[in-house]
Design a binder for these strands. Structure first.
Lengths: 224, 224
DNA sequence: TAGATTGTTAATCGATTAACAATC
DNA sequence: TAGATTGTTAATCGATTAACAATC
């Protein structure tokens, strides 16, 4: 069934499916059932079938899903069948760590430029990209058709950087700074601030008080 | 209203409240209403009142919430009125970046030990902590009463590390590796894998304006 | 008193899960 | 055919929002 609007929760699960499917493909597994996926990913099989059915009839009754075909489909849904250029703003420790994380590459996301506001950082190399000054942000974004920005600057600079990204026509932002960014409705922001995750973990340390939930993983995110 | 069971969504919002309240306190604002909080945090005021009311009657009708008092209460709810010791496993780029992020300190979370499986890393200093070999993990956790573990090792080592943490009696895990960890129900895991966030962002890029980029990267490129 | 704002109940909305006919 | 498994509808569960009496 198509044409319903897709909820955020569904979209959030697609990369998780993709990740596991890629593993299957590497191991040359040809098909997989919603049951197996559910087991491995801690999700209800009905939910997985429903998620996928939003986008098309990808499975075969009695058989399951063809791994290669499903990967192709999910990649397409996520716009990953073309390279998506990414800019990183903030060449501090975290920024450097992320730029090395070439995880992205596997899924056609690629950091193609790095910026920093701090003079002495400019011109240095981060993972073989030359750090550029903020003045060049807008033109670089346009020249290289950069669609996604990663913000790893300190809290007090984050909103300002976001504004510049928006102005330059960015499509989406991954924000590591611990604030709620204001952006127009057409620019999606995902919060990647791990201090929030970290702190909420402390709640579950049992100090006598009990919480007998499953040890489910949860992806943690505030967006708007 | 007490004694309902608290949903994960509620707990996830508490650190966000705390963060904003701390900012107010810094600016010496004495009280705040659910309305203002909602506006600043992109949340419904009724939701905020309801969240807080799960834990007690912290506000005053007609007035709002006393900032200092509410901070104290939320800190207490989150177990942050005592120092919580944290161990970091994986002294790679990301691990180093996190160890510098002393954001935690503000909220009584403190990384007190760092481990790595890779021989040459052992003994080096990370943010003035000496990297220890994995063999010492269990005793260190017990000696220092470490409650939370941060996993920043490669994907294929993550489950094994998690097992060791569980065995050593850890209370909760923040997992940066891109897999679903298996842990007993009493050990909570939060997924902090940002590649998932990143990839799901791509879904929201509107492809109305696709100028099929030739993606010529100006900067010196990484090759692979 | 008048205005503001909480705590809480009821209404709404949305997401997950169960169940099963269709069919490979 | 018999067994497996999808796609989908209906049932359930849970979370968000509206509304308002209580009260500062």
């Amino acid at each position: 069934m198509k044409s319903d609007k897709i909820s955020e929760a569904v979209v959030r699960r697609l990369p998780i499916y993709l990740r596991y499917l890629s593993g299957l493909q590497r191991r040359e597994v040809a098909t997989v059932s919603s049951q197996e996926l559910g087991q491995k990913l801690d999700l209800n099989p009905a939910q997985i079938r429903k998620d996928l059915a939003y986008f098309g009839d990808f499975g075969r009754k009695g058989i399951g899903y063809d791994v290669a075909y499903l990967i192709e489909k999910i990649r397409h849904i996520l716009n990953l069948d073309q390279q998506i250029n990414v800019v990183l703003i903030g060449a501090g420790n975290l920024g450097q760590a992320l730029s090395n994380y070439n995880m992205y590459l596997k899924e056609n996301l690629k950091i193609v430029a790095v910026f920093d506001a701090y003079g002495p950082k400019v011109g240095t190399l981060i993972n073989s990209l030359k750090v550029q000054p903020m003045e060049e942000l807008s033109t670089t974004i346009q020249q290289h058709n950069i669609r996604i920005g990663i913000i790893t600057v300190p809290e007090h600079e984050a909103q300002q950087v976001a504004d510049k990204l928006v102005e330059a026509g960015i499509g989406a932002i991954l924000n590591f700074a611990p604030i709620i960014l204001r952006t127009p409705a057409n620019v999606r922001v995902h919060a990647a601030d791990f201090t929030t995750d970290m702190i909420s973990l402390a709640y579950y340390l049992d100090n006598g008080k009990e919480d007998l939930d499953d040890a489910k993983q949860s992806n943690t995110e505030v967006d708007h």
